[in-house]
């Protein structure tokens, strides 16, 4: 008989109650509605840029994807510190869930960025732009975090090693954000919307931009919640299998 999991309620350990509970809940539905509203506003009710035309509208999914990625990876780093300190399995599970969602948002940020760059910069990728290169490094580190977790069977060792890697990954985020100030070799512009004093965009564009932040942060949290529930299910399935083998 295996020891009960810390961080799972008795109701969650009941297989029937567990199976009946969907991983996508009302909050996920709310997130989907928020993203649809954002898409409609961005595509139909926000004016295009005077120079870049309609491609500039990628901005509303591109920047929001980075915000979602940084939020998710920030949660992973925070939960990793909590896990290293308290050894609470819930923190480890939440860190893993956030890292996976962070990788999805990083992928969206990189792919939408290359599509936009291809037309506006005339190249899919520019290696000497530090923000681009550092974000690719971050993608590899988060991917390595998930691969590492998949390769270690011992939960304690898996939690410790991956927690250290997650904290190191999060340390890259300030450098990515400040890369436009730190490095002269760059194609990424200086801050446009969140410039102190006077944003260089129309009020309609600014409203859509800030709305995209809200919509995609809600989506990020909804996906982390769903992925966390999957983690709970997976841990209990593992315990059930071990329990079955022991009989």
């Amino acid at each position: 008989m295996t020891a009960p999991f810390r961080g799972t309620t008795p109701q969650q350990r009941d297989p029937q109650a567990l199976v009946a509970k969907p991983i996508f809940d009302w909050f996920f539905a709310f997130a989907v509605v928020a993203v649809i509203v954002l898409y409609v506003r961005a595509l139909a009710f926000t004016p295009p840029d005077a120079l870049q035309g309609l491609a500039q509208k990628i901005y509303y999914v591109h920047i929001a994807a980075w915000l979602g990625a940084y939020t998710a990876i920030g949660i992973t780093a925070l939960m990793s510190i909590v896990y290293l300190w308290l050894h609470d399995e819930r923190a480890d599970r939440l860190g893993e869930a956030s890292a996976e969602v962070g990788l999805v948002f990083l992928t969206v940020g990189l792919t939408t960025g290359t599509i936009w760059a291809h037309r506006i910069w005339g190249a899919w990728w520019v290696w000497w732009d530090m923000r681009l290169t550092l974000t690719l490094f971050l993608w590899f580190i988060v991917a390595a975090y998930l691969v590492l977790r998949g390769g270690i069977e011992d939960p304690g060792m898996r939690g410790r090693y991956s927690a250290v890697l997650a904290v190191l990954a999060a340390l890259l985020i300030p450098f990515i954000h400040l890369s436009v100030y730190l490095f002269s070799a760059r194609l990424h512009p200086m801050p446009v919307a969140l410039q102190p004093g006077r944003p260089k965009m129309s009020p309609e564009m600014l409203t859509t931009f800030l709305g995209s932040f809200v919509a995609f942060i809600i989506l990020c949290i909804a996906l982390i919640r769903a992925r966390y529930r999957l983690g709970v299910l997976r841990d209990i399935a593992s315990a059930a299998e071990i329990d079955g083998d022991a009989r």
Binding site: Q52, G53, K57, L230
Partner: peptide, 30 residues
């Protein structure tokens, strides 16, 4: 203003496909 309609559509389609693909993968794993 240059015509960048195709890039805009491609950007939104790619982002949506990645998000929906992840949601489907979560559902299948669950």
């Amino acid at each position: 203003m240059i015509d960048t309609h195709a890039e805009m559509v491609a950007g939104y389609v790619v982002a949506t496909v990645i998000y929906i693909g992840y949601v489907v993968s979560l559902w299948l794993r669950a």
